[in-house]
Amino acid sequence: MRDLLPELCDRYSSELRLFAPIFTSFGGQQIFAGPIDTVRCPEDNGLVRTVLSEPGAGRVLLIDGGGMARRALLGDQLAMMASSNGWAGIVVYGSVRDVMTLATIPVGIQALGAVPMKTEKRGLGERGVEVEILGLRIQPGQYLYADPNGIAVSDRALSLPDGFEELNFAAD
């Protein structure tokens, strides 16, 4: 299979904003895309569980964990839930755990790194808010595209190149 992001950058360079190249792919699905839902929750993934328990309908959950690496905001149980509920992918501005198992789950996952410590459930977090990751502002409803080349965001759904039909959301 071809690379998605280079193709999109060639076609839509003026419409894409790229994340800094600091994320690593951990999921069993290397290429993913979809409309964005957001959660801001430093070191508490209770809200992440709530959101991923809902039907994903091909969306991508962007988790703003503040870039912290002390506790994992996503592990194998939440990733399996996301896959079962139809989420296209998850991007964690923070850490994940259970990396060997994550690689076997058919959902896209990118994060800053891995740490084995789970979070405490303190009821913290916000959903559906604008998040800022290293100067890049992202809002719910924008579109995220990810592959091993990186992560990009656009304000609208872009027409995907031939061969990427499995990323099935309707482009404008």
Rank of each mutant, 00 (worst) to 15 (best):
Q30A: 15
C9A: 14
I31K: 11
N85V: 08
V91N: 04
S13E: 11
V39D: 02
A171E: 07
L160V: 04
G75D: 06
V91F: 00
V115M: 09
G128M: 09
A114R: 02
L47G: 04
V129K: 13
Y12H: 12
I138R: 00
A114I: 05
A114E: 11
A33S: 14
R71K: 15
W87L: 05
E54D: 15
A20I: 08
V129G: 09
A157P: 08
I105P: 01
E120W: 09
E165S: 04
G65Q: 05
R127H: 04
R137H: 08
T101D: 06
S159A: 08
R137D: 04
G46A: 02
P161T: 09
G108P: 07
S154L: 03
M117C: 10
R71A: 09
A82M: 15
E15D: 13
Y93N: 10
L18W: 01
P42W: 03
G27Y: 03
L160R: 02
I109N: 12
V99M: 05
K118H: 07
D64H: 08
V107I: 12
I109W: 11
E130M: 12
L158W: 03
C41T: 13
L5D: 09
P161A: 11
P161K: 14
G27D: 06
G150S: 05
D64C: 10
L158Q: 03
L8Y: 01
P55Q: 06
G89D: 03
P161F: 09
I22Q: 04
R70Y: 08
S154F: 03
D147A: 10
M100I: 04
V153P: 00
P161R: 11
G89W: 01
C41F: 09
T50F: 14
E15P: 06
L167S: 04
T24R: 09
M100F: 07
L52W: 04
P6F: 01
D155M: 11
L47F: 06
E120S: 14
I90S: 08
F23P: 09
